[in-house]
Design a binder for these strands. Sequence first.
DNA 1: ATAGAACCTGACGTTAGGTGTAGATTTGAC
DNA 2: GTCAAATCTACACCTAACGTCAGGTTCTAT
Lengths: 132, 132
Amino acid sequence: MVGLSSLMQIGELSERAGVSHRTIHYYERLGLVEPAEREGTGYRYYDEIALKRLEKIAALKRLGLSLDEIAAVIDLYFEDASGIRGKERVLEILQAQLDKTNTQLDELSTFKRDLENNIARMLGLIAQARQK
Amino acid sequence: MVGLSSLMQIGELSERAGVSHRTIHYYERLGLVEPAEREGTGYRYYDEIALKRLEKIAALKRLGLSLDEIAAVIDLYFEDASGIRGKERVLEILQAQLDKTNTQLDELSTFKRDLENNIARMLGLIAQARQK
DNA sequence: ATAGAACCTGACGTTAGGTGTAGATTTGAC
DNA sequence: GTCAAATCTACACCTAACGTCAGGTTCTAT
């Protein structure tokens, strides 16, 4: 194969993104990433956008979104604005997601306070145990 | 059975906690909840603490903790402080969790900003589409 | 032209977190 | 005492998100 100079194969993408190639195949079946090129041969060739998508997917996963939910919003990050179909629908998804996010932020802050209190308590108990 | 007047059966607990009785059985196997009473007969009888535990479990799940991680910290919320074994170990778990929580808070805030930007963009596009 | 690395597909395995179901037992009401 | 509702145990099954394995193809270097 010639003329794909700026593209990378799945091995490099996999390594740079920190996910296995089987995971990339899996994501492809779910419509989350696509190779930029794929001629008759079968080999997949990816551009930098694919890498960014994988990174975005990882970030959204850390936030607790399922792959299905990610599939529903990820194009917002990569499609050019004018091309977005079903804007109202997308807007709904975003609003719902924002609500969830706000709740999650609240709960997380509370959890953090709890953790900090518990840590302080633990430290106290440990110091006390040492003293005797 | 008599004398368990202030206790409830699994059906009531299940309903009040909003989880199935099968889930409660499952949690019991993982050591997350226990009936307050269980005589020879086999029936489980729960107190209000069990309900609080289930609610706490749900909250921790929403924060993205696995059931195993929850098992590691939940007693902090219910055991009396003096009874906590392996304080150093618990402290480590808490510290690690706090780090994770801080990262998660950051990512979540970023995500929220992204969402808000996307929402604004969508609203703009929709208004524009209406105008023409 | 050939070896070895990289890649392909398809089928099956795995873990977490449950749900479904069947057949037996217990309970509470009458 | 009897009957329906609630519960019990045990086993099987389910989905999400991958990982493993096997056998075959393609690429690159020499």
